[in-house]
């Protein structure tokens, strides 16, 4: 682990924000799970199963929100066990860090390794992201941003906004009253629809 890095929690606090759409999408990702008990009358969830029931031992790709709910309820036996082969961070797509962090809710042996790997990845990529955000005020950065994770994109646009506001302040333009951006966008859209 890089020196001076903050300590990593291997079990982050659960729901951040109930209404957070990004959190909802991030927990939509599927992970391979193995059924520990039989479940009656829900056989339709597994197309390969015969009959009305889900059999114990069946392997299913379940969305993260469901696996998490079923494998950790204090006081009850485990219904599901997540498959450790899920620890493939490259499959995580646009919610790399968020989904990865969610995986730490499970008791994988690889948890600490996974956490530090995510942190190192972030640190390594952060420098380039910051550099480009500070220099690309007038350039097309879509090539870079298309490769960024959801959180990295937010970092990038925050950096870009900062530079833009600084330049405005430097030229003494901050006191100028401007048209609301929403109104400008709305007019643009209307115009392009008429054309």
């Amino acid at each position: 682990m890089a020196s001076g890095a903050p300590p990593l929690r291997s079990h982050p606090s659960s729901e951040l924000d109930y209404f957070d759409i990004d959190d909802i999408i991030a927990t939509q990702g599927r992970i391979p799970s193995k059924l520990e008990v039989q479940i009656y009358n829900l056989g339709f969830l597994d197309p390969s199963s015969e009959g009305n029931d889900l059999q114990a031992g069946a392997k299913l790709e379940l969305p993260l929100w469901l696996s998490k709910e079923l494998s950790y309820k204090d006081g009850y036996r485990e219904v599901f066990k997540a498959d450790a082969s899920v620890v493939d961070l490259h499959r995580l797509g646009p919610y790399f860090y968020e989904f990865g962090t969610k995986l730490l809710h499970f008791d994988f042996e690889e948890n600490s390794q996974m956490a530090s790997s995510m942190q190192e990845t972030f640190i390594k990529r952060f420098r380039k992201i910051m550099d480009s955000s500070q220099n690309a005020a007038n350039e097309d950065a879509s090539l870079l941003t298309s490769k960024l994770d959801h959180i990295e994109k937010q970092v990038f646009s925050a950096g870009r906004k900062g530079v833009r506001e600084f330049l405005q302040w430097e030229t003494g333009n901050t006191s100028k009253l401007t048209t609301s951006e929403t109104v400008v966008n709305h007019k643009k859209r209307k115009r392009s629809m008429l054309e």
Binding site: Q38, Y40, L66, L70, K73, Y76, V79
Partner: peptide, 12 residues
Amino acid sequence: GLFSGVHLRHAS
């Protein structure tokens, strides 16, 4: 034995 199913539906 029905409990797991109830739990799953409740989560949904």
